[in-house]
């Protein structure tokens, strides 16, 4: 499970941290798009993209390898592409001993490309969350015309994520405290354990439902009328425009060069 209770945001005093969150959000999306559009086997382009993301990590004072070290999250999904090297037609470059499966060259290239795209994209996303407080990110989403109601929901979810996850973990702990392992005694059957987990989920739901009622009451008592309202927070400065244009242009340049050559 993915509950890292530590907020992924890393406070630093850096150029990247000071950028308008909208600039960072848009650039991250453009980066992911550019990486996804890069043709198979365009190794130079991928190297350039990697350099870009490492530079950003360094400029954010996170250390150049920050995103690198955290980027293996997407790795388990690699399994989904594992067949590609074997089933893509083309000249064989390797034969698996015993099994006799052959890896084709285009298959290998495609496989590595998929992994590279995933790996680079996830690094950009990691940098975004590490340099942007989540509340600023939410604000920029609202500002980028994502429906207000949806963004407000994300805000509530973020706020109560920790509260409810804490409750869930406390329940897990309470259950563990009452689940002695007696050597030699049979363990309770899986079905039973799953039912216990299910009951925990049910009571967590009731607590959440009641909480949502109280939260609504707290909002209403401060004047909430169903409309979502928020303050304007950021102003695009000269620097923001420069970074936005500079980085987007380099993304386009890398792509164009790759395609022309």
């Amino acid at each position: 499970m993915h509950i890292s209770f530590l907020d992924p945001f890393q406070a630093r005093d850096s150029l990247v941290h000071r950028l308008d969150p909208r600039v960072k959000a848009v650039l991250t999306l453009l980066y992911v798009l550019a990486v996804s559009l890069t043709p198979q086997g365009a190794w130079a382009a991928f190297a350039a993209f990697l350099a870009l993301v490492l530079t950003a990590a360094w400029a954010a004072k996170l250390g150049w390898s920050y995103s690198l070290r955290r980027s293996f999250i997407a790795l388990p999904f690699m399994l989904a592409a594992l067949a590609v090297p074997f089933v893509t037609p083309g000249p064989a470059i390797y034969e698996v001993p015993v099994l006799g499966w052959t890896v084709s060259e285009p298959g290998f290239v495609r496989f590595v490309t998929i992994l590279l795209r995933a790996w680079l994209a996830v690094q950009a996303a990691i940098l975004l969350t590490a340099t942007t407080p989540f509340t600023d990110l939410l604000w920029s989403l609202r500002n980028l015309r994502i429906p207000q109601a949806l963004v407000a929901m994300l805000g509530f979810m973020y706020r109560y994520l920790f509260v409810l996850a804490d409750e869930a973990l406390r329940m897990n702990r309470a259950r563990a405290a009452r689940s002695p392992r007696i050597v030699g005694a049979p363990r309770p059957p899986i079905g039973w354990q799953a039912r216990v987990a299910g009951s925990m989920v049910g009571s967590l739901f009731l607590r959440a439902l009641e909480r949502s009622e109280r939260v609504y009451a707290a909002m209403a008592s401060r004047g909430y009328d169903g409309e979502v309202r928020a303050l304007v927070r950021f102003q695009m400065l000269g620097l923001d425009w420069i970074v936005l244009l500079g980085v987007s242009l380099s993304l386009v340049a890398i792509l164009t060069l790759t395609l022309v050559i």
Partner: peptide, 21 residues
Amino acid sequence: DPDDQLFSPSVFDDVAFGPLY
């Protein structure tokens, strides 16, 4: 329960909520 009262993702947003509305 202050966890019910403080429903916004940041303290600022929360204190600003009433005045905003």
